[in-house]
Write a protein that binds this DNA or RNA. Structure first.
Lengths: 188, 188
DNA sequence: GTCTATAATAGGATAGAC
DNA sequence: GTCTATCCTATTATAGAC
């Protein structure tokens, strides 16, 4: 049953994600994590003996699972590359609610907790880049071109979330979502 | 004498910047802010009666000043657009130490303190975009094209800092620095 | 597995002497 | 303008009953 977002622990991870997304790692207090999950402090420690750090780890697992199932799986299916890419773009767009929601990965990279979660961050970013690069190669790019396009795509997604947040305007994110197909598949 | 980074208050702001950059707003404790500036807690409150929030505001002023003098002023000088842009790119590259240092603006956008500093963030990002857009227009782009290129440039700078941080590899930032001239001035 | 209660500490902020 | 000492609160974390 690996994959479905069910089970109370996965449910909790989803709520915890919301809090970390909004407040960052350091800004997320146990009080809010408790309120968001509906679990008392002691229950949280029962499920996550390592405290906040364990909770964040569970959130990374949750995100990893989401990324594999919702974003990367379509890229690996058979069929038209453009259609498969669009599925992924739609998933990302929903995930960030059209640019109104922040990225937990970015938040953890730029916040004070980078060192603590560097392996998870590295794994997430490189997994995403690799999957996009493979699609670009399939669409006709060389290995090197494919990697460059994929890296630039992830750079633009992350950057647009920062800029949209800074300007308090989802338009930059939206514009990136629109130009992703040409960026990955080439200027056809 | 507006401009030179002298005076003990500006000196303090520079040290405070370092701490906020490394730990984020919530992660920066008074203990570290005190240690970094060499000022005791009470001295900090003497200079910044509003506490941490005042310190962050001073850091924003410091950044604003740096941006005007080191990054934007070259864009507005007379002379060859490509050379002026390169001056700005070099300033940014030094500022982020080739991709090894994080961006305070991005950190505040993605951290839990966005709401508190939204006006400063908005002003910084839109000032940067406007200045780059003007240069692009001067180099032959239409108003609309100029704005689009400038926005994409800021998106790529911010995104590359996130991705470089996540991968623990400055290469993505370096690659963005290299393609900025073509991005802003057009594919000539 | 969840709760109440409580410990232990770190954090932000202030008072008052110098 | 800086220091020592202190206060208050929020925060993380644990103990032990149910």
């Amino acid at each position: 049953m690996a994959g479905a977002a069910t089970g109370s622990k996965d449910m909790a991870a989803s709520r915890l994600l919301g809090v970390f997304r909004e407040h960052g790692y350091d800004g997320a207090s146990l009080a809010e994590l408790s309120k968001a999950t509906g679990l008392g402090r002691s229950s949280l420690y029962h499920h996550f003996p390592g405290g906040k750090e364990d909770m964040a780890k569970a959130v990374f697992d949750h995100i990893h699972e989401w990324m594999e199932i919702s974003a990367l799986a379509p890229l690996r299916e058979p069929g038209d590359p453009a259609e498969r890419l669009q599925k992924m773009i739609n998933a990302i767009d929903r995930y960030y609610v059209g640019g109104y929601e922040r990225c937990l990965l970015g938040s953890f990279v730029l916040g004070g907790s980078r060192g603590r979660f560097q392996p998870q961050l590295k794994s997430s970013f490189s997994g995403l880049i690799k999957a996009l690069a493979a699609l670009a190669v399939e669409a006709g790019a060389s290995q090197e071109q494919g990697f460059e396009r994929a890296e630039e795509a992830v750079v633009q997604i992350q950057g647009s979330l920062v800029v949209s947040g800074g300007l308090d305007d989802p338009a930059p994110f939206r514009r990136v979502m629109e130009r992703l197909p040409r960026l990955i598949l080439g200027r056809s």
